[in-house]
């Protein structure tokens, strides 16, 4: 059962990543691109967790945690840039 479901899940998450990438390229506003980047990192976490289950390895968890931390900081910094025109004040 699991060996059947995991490839399907990979395909679905991969499709999600492709859609997000499309939005990242098309835009049209900078806020749209930031939102696409934000979604991209959340989807990447999903992909990493799936890979961890698929390969039966807990190693990928640390990568997922780091992406969650860094992605959030990146989104906040980019939003601040849009709001104030500067990141470090």
């Amino acid at each position: 059962m699991l060996s059947l479901v995991i490839p399907i899940a990979f395909a679905l998450v991969g499709l999600a990543l492709a859609l997000t990438l499309w939005r990242l390229l098309v835009g049209p506003s900078p806020a749209d691109r930031i939102l696409a980047l934000d979604t991209l990192y959340v989807n990447t976490i999903a992909l990493l967790v799936l890979l961890g289950i698929h390969l039966e390895s807990a190693l990928y968890f640390e990568a997922a945690l780091l992406i969650a931390l860094m992605g959030f900081v990146g989104t906040v910094a980019l939003c601040k840039y849009l709001l104030r025109g500067d990141i470090i004040e």
Binding site: V13, A16, L17, L19, T20, W22, R23, A36, T39, V42
Partner: peptide
């Protein structure tokens, strides 16, 4: 996850 990205697109 797919539906979220579908909404985005």
């Amino acid at each position: 996850t797919l539906i979220g990205s579908l909404g985005l697109a």
